[in-house]
Write a protein that binds this DNA or RNA. Structure first.
Length: 553
DNA sequence: CCCTGCTGGATAC
DNA sequence: TATCCAGCAGGGT
């Protein structure tokens, strides 16, 4: 305590800084007072706006633009390890990083405008000196941390706990008042093209709605371009929390190469009148991540002979899905429906006099408008409209969707006969196009045979495939029809089981694993189709091999 | 809740 | 064309 000349006493807390840092570390570890969640590569990191905005103008600006109490910020093109390192840097003021990881860390820091790493770190108490640190110089790291190459696991030990599904969500129990992520169409890997070029372009096309925060600056640098999936990337996750590490490893394996948009979503509007909703093409296709090793490798008898013991890497490892995309904000037309808050039936007092639109019609309309369901349809529109000028010449159903979506975009309102028109065009296309050949239309015989050969179990018993009640909401129409709304996006379904599968697109839960190639699937149906292809390829290969022998005899 | 089949869009080849 | 992703729906447990 210092007695000042004016009689004022200066009370000084000698260990104020260290105490603050200590407390900060504690609340981070305990996830106390978390008011923001960072989603990255399938993992969720509870954090604090105060800390993030203090350390990053990027976050500061983002939080200023959204009123959401607990946003979930989906970070694209940032590796989980890098994000964890940056969080440690922000909370602890330092972080240890391997030299080989430095460049990606700096890139991530640049994307997030982390002070001291990517942008000038000026002493707030000294406004006279401002030094600009070059992002790639590495000098900023030296200035702020002790780089210790021996501390190899510093990041991994800071893995945030996750739930059994490998994904942790926060603040989703009662209402989905935080950001949501929509499942999006995958994007095939293309080793010949830069990973994120298309991502950027499509992302820029993403419309921003009034109650949606402005698109966050796009982290631009691709991280973990390849070789980080399957057996190499997420296989080992030594951590202090074995259970969470194991769970997160699963998700991590799935989402290693996940590229997601950085964006935030404001809190949902209270209750929007459906007529007030205007089509904004929200369900645009996000530039999905690339999926190294996604395609099936060549099927040779030799590879098949390995069976379950073979090295999955030979088969390209696992794939993963692009799960997080442009967040959406508009509520599904809740003027027609009442939320079944208890998850039960409230139809007792809702039977209406109101001449409400049937739920199926509303669902269909909203789907075609791009607000819910079948993201692919709307995504196809945005993609085709921008990339395929000739789509109108097509008579296939994709052309149908394009036409209808185009008209929707122009009018912003749907004709009451919109879905009927859709059906008519669809029927017309079916008769005129003669159908479309499908390589994946394989019958039951093949499935049965494949099951005999490969077992077809595929279901990871460690993964809880049941739907998480915290991830969806139940609504009732005035007519008492129950339907379910995804907590991540505007998808709605009359069937809970289909919603369950849909939610896996968001959470990255892929309970079905191909024992032959290690590829993982969230959907049993697609898993079956995949296995059938294995089987057919094997049979074809066998047939080819046996041909010369037949010729000789 | 699960299994299954089918379908459409997207994309690589 | 083959394959993957995603959604829908029938049927069964």
């Amino acid at each position: 305590m210092v007695k000042m000349s004016s009689g004022l006493l200066s009370l000084k807390w000698n260990h104020h800084r260290s105490t603050f840092l200590h407390v900060l570390a504690n609340i981070r570890r305990k996830e106390s007072y978390s008011d923001v969640t960072l989603a990255c590569a399938g993992k969720f990191y509870p954090a604090h706006k105060l800390v993030l905005s203090t350390c990053s103008e990027y976050f500061e600006e983002m939080f200023e633009r959204t009123q959401c109490k607990h946003p979930v910020i989906v970070l694209k093109d940032i590796g989980a390890d890098d994000l964890e390192a940056l969080l440690s840097y922000m909370y602890d003021g330092e972080v240890n990083v391997l030299q080989e990881n430095l460049s990606s860390l700096i890139k991530a820091a640049e994307c997030l405008k982390i002070k001291g790493l990517a942008v000038a770190d000026s002493d707030p108490t000294d406004r006279t000196k401002e030094k600009k640190l070059h992002p790639s110089s590495g000098s900023s790291i030296n200035a702020n941390s002790n780089i210790n190459n021996s501390n190899r696991d510093v990041h991994r030990n800071e893995k945030r706990p996750v739930n059994g599904s490998g994904i942790k969500r926060t603040n989703v129990n009662s209402s989905f008042s935080e950001d949501v992520a929509q499942p999006i169409k995958r994007r095939r890997p293309d080793s010949r093209t830069p990973l994120n070029t298309s991502a950027s372009s499509e992302e820029q096309e993403a419309p921003v709605t009034s109650n949606e925060s402005a698109a966050a600056p796009e982290p631009a640098s691709p991280v973990g371009e390849d070789g980080n999936n399957g057996g190499s990337g997420g296989e080992s996750q030594p951590g202090d929390d074995a259970k969470s590490a194991e769970a997160s490893e699963e998700a991590n394996n799935f989402l290693q190469d996940l590229n997601v948009d950085a964006g935030v979503k404001a809190e949902p509007v209270e209750v929007l009148d459906a007529d007030d909703l205007t089509f904004d093409g929200r369900e645009d296709e996000d530039a999905g991540p690339d999926h190294p090793g996604e395609d099936l490798p060549d099927f040779t008898e030799e590879k098949f002979s390995g069976g379950e013991g073979e090295d999955p890497s030979l088969w390209g490892g696992t794939d993963e899905t692009d799960l997080f995309s442009q967040p959406s904000t508009s509520n599904f037309g809740e003027d027609d429906v009442k939320k079944d808050a208890a998850g039960g039936d409230k139809s007792g007092n809702t039977s209406s006099s109101a001449n409400s639109t049937s739920i199926s019609t509303r669902l269909e309309e909203d789907r075609l408008r791009g607000f819910c369901s079948r993201p692919g349809a709307a995504a196809a529109f945005s993609a085709s409209a921008s990339k395929t000028p000739s789509f109108q010449a097509q008579s296939t159903s994709s052309g149908i969707d394009n036409k209808l979506s185009s008209s929707t975009e122009l009018s912003s309102e749907l004709s009451p006969y919109y879905h009927q028109l859709h059906d008519i065009l669809q029927a017309s296309a079916a008769t005129t196009s003669g159908g479309r050949g499908r390589g994946d239309a394989i019958g039951f015989d093949e499935l049965s045979a494949a099951r005999d050969v490969y077992g077809m179990a595929g279901l990871d018993s460690n993964i809880d495939t049941r739907i998480d009640p915290s991830q969806f909401e139940t609504y009732l129409t005035d007519a008492g029809v129950r339907y379910y709304k995804c907590g991540w996006c505007q998808y709605t379904s009359l069937r809970k089981d289909n919603l369950n599968v849909h939610i896996r697109r968001h959470t990255g839960v892929k309970p079905h694993t191909c024992a032959t190639c290690g590829k993982k699937f969230s959907d049993r149906s697609n898993f079956n189709a995949h296995m059938k292809r294995h089987y057919i390829a094997m049979m074809e290969s066998s047939a080819r091999d046996s041909e010369p022998q037949l010729n000789r005899t």
